[in-house]
C-alpha cells in the first residue's frame, strides 16, 4: 500500500473515530473523504478497507453506484447545470451547449483539456423557482439566460488569474 501522508491519516482518523462505532457507516465516511479530497483516492479506499475490515470491492461498488462520489480528482471549477424538469423546460439544454462551446468541451465530454473546468449535469439543485439554474463550485446562479454565460465565465477566469 502507498503510505499515507500523516496529516491526512489524522483527518481521516477523525472521521473514522466518529463513525466507526456506528452501524452502516460506510456512506457517511465516504462523504467525509469526498469532502476532504473532492474525490475518493485509491490509497484512501485501501486504507478504509483495512480500517473498517470491509472488502475493497464493497467500497468500490458503493462509490461507483452513487453519483455523488468520484474516483478522479475534481476540476478546479465544477459547473453543475441543473437538468431537473423545471430547468429542462426553461432552457438547461441550451445552457449546457453554450457552456461547452465557450469552454471548448466536446458535447460528450465533461472536462476541459487542462481539467480546470468540468461541466456536468445534475438533478434539481432545489431552486426550481429560479430555473434554469447552475452551481459553480458552491455558488448558485439562477434565472440564467444563454447570454449570461460568457460574462460569468469571464469573471471566474479573472478571479483565477488574480
Amino acid at each position: 500500500m502507498e503510505t499515507l501522508h500523516e496529516e491526512i491519516t489524522d483527518e481521516i482518523r477523525a472521521i473514522l473515530d466518529k463513525w466507526k462505532p456506528k452501524e452502516g457507516n460506510l456512506i457517511m465516511i465516504l462523504h467525509g473523504v469526498q469532502q476532504r479530497y473532492g474525490y475518493v483516492p485509491w490509497n484512501i479506499s485501501k486504507f478504509l478497507a483495512s480500517e473498517l475490515s470491509v472488502p475493497l470491492a464493497r467500497i468500490f461498488e458503493v462509490v461507483t453506484f452513487y453519483n455523488f462520489f468520484n474516483l478522479e480528482a475534481p476540476a478546479d471549477y465544477k459547473i453543475s447545470v441543473c437538468t431537473g424538469t423545471a430547468c429542462h423546460l426553461k432552457g438547461a439544454p441550451v445552457l449546457i451547449q453554450g457552456l461547452k462551446k465557450q469552454l471548448k468541451i466536446s458535447p460528450k465530454a465533461q472536462y476541459t483539456e487542462d481539467r480546470k473546468f468540468k461541466v456536468e449535469e445534475v438533478r434539481c439543485v432545489g431552486c426550481c423557482g429560479l430555473a434554469p439554474a447552475m452551481v459553480i463550485n458552491e455558488e448558485v446562479y439562477g434565472r440564467l439566460k444563454p447570454e449570461d454565460i460568457e460574462p460569468t465565465l469571464e469573471t471566474i477566469k479573472i478571479e483565477e488569474t488574480s
Binding site: E23, G24, N25, L26, I27, M28, L30, H31, R58, E61, V62, F65, Y66, N67, F68, F69, R123
Partner: peptide, 25 residues
Amino acid sequence: RLGAGAFVCGEETALIASIEGERGT
C-alpha cells in the same frame, strides 16, 4: 444519514440498503 446522488434510494428498500452502507439497490 445522507444520500449520495441516487434517485432510487427514495424507494424504501433501497433507502434501507443505503443506510446500511451498501449499493442502493
